[in-house]
């Protein structure tokens, strides 16, 4: 297990550079958008990874609520945090792509809005974890994660209704993907998934270490106060 981490790190680095080469050189240039369309190979895999991490957060939170297992709590925290990072990437690259293609930075499109709302929900989740007092954090956070997951379909439908009433420039959708593009997309997704696993793993170890240090500190405080008397 000790060697698995460096192996994964090397694999991720290789995959990421290969995916970058594929995205910039191998993938065909899109007919109407030109080279700018290559943002797609970073934007979409990041979005999928973020959604997958949020799903992981939900599953881990439910496991925590049932079993009260510390590991599940750490997994929930880590996946939410890394998910927010990937979601931020999506929200930053999205407008950079939209500007040259549609001439606008932002539009209240279904997918964009859904991503933004998810980002807001999970940032509030991380805020709660930061602000609540130590002993109750995992439980409160797990409950909030369940509420956030309940909210997602409602957010989806509300934005969908909203869109049907306030039509805006039709974006993407329809049209089939060139199979070569699809292949490059999948390679990029695999690379980013590996990267996400790597980051989560490191963050998981840091969190474990942090909890141990904090516990020991509390313990030393207690021992000292007893020993002093």
């Amino acid at each position: 297990m000790k060697r698995a981490f460096p192996i994964l790190a090397v694999l991720t680095a290789v995959l990421l550079s290969y995916a970058l080469y594929q995205a910039l050189e191998v993938a065909p240039t899109e007919a109407t958008m030109g080279d700018v369309q290559r943002i797609f190979y970073y934007h979409v895999p990041s979005a999928w990874t973020a959604f997958l991490l949020f799903l992981t957060n939900f599953v881990a939170s439910v496991v925590y609520l049932i079993r009260r297992n510390t590991k599940a709590d750490i997994v929930a925290l880590v996946s939410a945090e890394v998910g927010v990072v990937f979601c931020t990437v999506v929200l930053v690259t999205g407008p950079i792509w939209a500007r040259p293609v549609w001439g606008i930075w932002w539009t209240w499109d279904l997918r964009l809005t859904l991503t933004l709302v998810l980002w807001l929900i999970y940032v509030s989740y991380l805020m709660l974890r930061r602000f609540s007092s130590s002993g109750q954090t995992p439980l409160m956070a797990a409950v909030l994660a369940v509420f956030g997951a309940l909210d997602v379909p409602l957010v989806y439908f509300s934005i969908w209704y909203f869109r049907t009433q306030h039509p805006s420039p039709v974006i993407g959708g329809g049209g089939s993907l060139d199979p070569r593009m699809g292949r490059v997309l999948l390679i990029n997704w695999a690379a980013f998934l590996c990267f996400a696993v790597l980051v989560c793993w490191s963050r998981y170890r840091v969190e474990r270490l942090q909890r141990e240090v904090e516990e020991t500190q509390a313990l030393e405080g207690l021992l000292e106060s007893r020993g002093a008397r």
Binding site: M127, L128, S132, S133, M140, G148, D151, I159
Partner: peptide
Amino acid sequence: AMSIRTRSREIMLPLLLFPISIPAVLA
């Protein structure tokens, strides 16, 4: 009820409530 367990609880409530309430407010 959740935010009374946190530091600075008066600020925490809107931070938790508003994101979850987005679909309701929109509706």
